[in-house]
Design a binder for these strands. Structure first.
Lengths: 172, 172
DNA sequence: AATGAAATTACCGCCCT
DNA sequence: AGGGCGGTAATTTCATT
């Protein structure tokens, strides 16, 4: 399993672009959108999966309507460093959606989706029982303007927009 | 479209539990897992979609292998309040995955997935061009221990675990 | 249980080494 | 000449009534 299975070409990117928005397209429909036949499209998707580009496919549930109206990000400061078994046990809670160790003024960043503020209190209580947890800061979402998974596209804008003054001699 | 279409029963929850992990199960397979026939399962899923419990289905892409190895959370402090059109324009960037207004010592919380640290710099540069953006703090993910979408399950643990000492007289 | 649609396989031909 | 890739046709599996 080497790192670079094969570079993505334009059609691969368009397929990924479609599938990350709507994974239940038929291969015929998907093929129409990217200009390939159904079997050729199927072949591409199979390859994207085999290469690990596509990890799987998931139903997108609506938090509020399944009883979890409260979304919060919790910063955790620990005295030791990361990955204690106790911290990893939190993974079993369906309320915990993300756990990352991060740079910056905190150690661990959690994303949790909960039933109520009482449940958030319960979650924080559980956190504080963990050895090495010093402090937490919670950021509760008031409005969610955007929430989606990994997108296929890449903006050239972010790479090319130099904030330095240009020499005025660069070609277009 | 009222709020409460019908409460979820145990089978609904199990269906949601399966589908949020793997959306490409056949109805026959899904039915086997929850103890229903294929058409009955189909009917349930159709209802869950119609009721807005299931918003859709998406392919889960692997950030690093599609060229976005860098994940960051960016806190944005603004002078005005939230939702300016300029801020909303960021939504067009495929690098931006989440945008929430939050409680706590910041106004807006962004989740971005990028090609490189140069791209993060480009993104921050773009942020600072926006009217009313005062300051940003970036938390770059070093390791991701867990990252998944909304889960169907609800822990009773978080609601029941009272941290207050019990009187010793409460029944089980 | 039956019908129609879609996924999947088999096989053939093209293009680019 | 060979390998990768895509197209069409045939078959099986699945969705849907």
């Amino acid at each position: 399993m080497t790192d670079t299975p094969r570079p993505l070409d334009a059609i691969d990117r368009r397929i990924l672009g479609e599938l990350c928005q709507k994974a239940d397209l038929s291969f015929a429909e998907l093929g129409d959108r990217v200009g390939l036949s159904a079997p050729a499209t199927h072949e591409r998707v199979k390859r994207l999966r085999a290469d690990g580009r596509i990890k799987g496919t998931a139903a997108q549930l609506d938090g509020p309507s399944i009883g979890k109206p409260l979304l919060a990000f919790v910063h955790v400061d620990t005295s030791g460093w990361g990955k204690s078994p106790e911290l990893m046990d939190l993974t079993e809670l369906p309320e915990l959606e993300e756990m990352h160790s991060v740079t910056g003024d905190t150690c661990m960043l959690l994303k949790v989706r909960l039933q109520s503020s009482q449940a958030l209190e319960g979650f924080l209580a559980r956190l504080y029982k963990i050895t090495g947890v010093r402090a937490t800061r919670s950021y509760v979402a008031l409005s969610t303007y955007l929430e989606r998974g990994v997108q296929a596209g890449i903006s050239e804008e972010l790479l090319l927009d130099r904030t330095y003054p240009s020499t005025g001699e660069e070609g277009g």
